[in-house]
Nucleic acid binder design. Sequence first.
DNA 1: GCTTCTGGCTAACAAGATTAGCCAACGGGG
DNA 2: CCCCGTTGGCTAATCTTGTTAGCCAGAAGC
Lengths: 199, 199
Amino acid sequence: MPRAGLDPAAVVAAAAALADEVGFAHLTMGLLAERVGVRTPSLYKHVGGQEDLNRRIAALAMSEAADAVGGAVQGYAGRDALAAAARAFRAFVLEHPGRYAATIGVEPADRDDPMAVASRRLLGAFRAVLRGYETPESDVDHALRMLRSLCHGFATLQAADGFQWSADIDESFEWLIAFADRGLRAVAAPEVSSPAPPR
Amino acid sequence: MPRAGLDPAAVVAAAAALADEVGFAHLTMGLLAERVGVRTPSLYKHVGGQEDLNRRIAALAMSEAADAVGGAVQGYAGRDALAAAARAFRAFVLEHPGRYAATIGVEPADRDDPMAVASRRLLGAFRAVLRGYETPESDVDHALRMLRSLCHGFATLQAADGFQWSADIDESFEWLIAFADRGLRAVAAPEVSSPAPPR
DNA sequence: GCTTCTGGCTAACAAGATTAGCCAACGGGG
DNA sequence: CCCCGTTGGCTAATCTTGTTAGCCAGAAGC
């Protein structure tokens, strides 16, 4: 029996690709074994089991997302950077729905968990976007959570086919980018915001 | 052997409650059977299987969310309505993480699917919020998707412990409501938005 | 060439979902 | 009140999937 030449990284990469193809929920050890040309139990020589595999897929996905967003932002600032980051993030989730799904519900064990490291990297990419808006320090954390919620929410809802009604989805996403852009500019310069009614 | 007096609604309600307690991923037919005081195979007299059960839990959750948001909005308009809707939605997800998790990744079969009906009801509640902002008809669909993405994203990220860093989460959510409020007012009256720099 | 470690394999087991088939309990009509 | 059909429970058995145990060949270093 010739060796298959596997290692943990190759197994995880194959698992992530398979998850993108068949959906994270349908990713099974048997299917993965077949894909990499090995019997099921052999996988356990490389990963600790399904739980461990999920965590590794999640870490890979988060790291790739951070690369995608970080790379897309390079050389842009302000609205252009925001648009590039948001589009890159959504594109990543839509191209890799399976591996991104693995990130949902995985809480990192500690700060050195690869998943936690990758999450911080992704966050850093979004933080770079905010620098172009000169967001006040006191608002940065909130704005980051807002951006992450918007992107995560939109992408996962679309990936899950959660938008049933008919308006054009790409158009909605561009509208959303414009909305966030206007809002972030207002945060940086609150004095120009519309005069609030008594309430 | 005395009858347990079950029916599909009771089984689904018990399953939803159990999912909230142990987490949707740990909801098992055996656990559910134990909870309702019956042997596992008996459940199949009331629901078609795990897939069917998940869909029913999702429909229940969506319907309850619609009720919560719809009820919270009553009697408010503008920013108050927006805040009430957003808080009600988030509170629902945090109080019922298990059943809400069931809604992720369930795409309704057709327009009469209970899940689809409930989703439209939830959407209607958010649409009512927009009426208070006099959002132009052409922007309503986009704004609805934005609101849904924001609320869904924030609530699911928090439920999954996805916000690792330290800033206060309630405070972030209130900030987010204020952000959406300012933005929606600007959509209704675009002439007061901050003048964009040339780029 | 020997030895050691690694990565494959088969066999076996455990947990969970599901199906088949039986039988008691409830409910309505004689 | 009794009969009978339907319903909802049960046990037993099957299938899928994850996982562990234990064996053995191939690769790598001496």
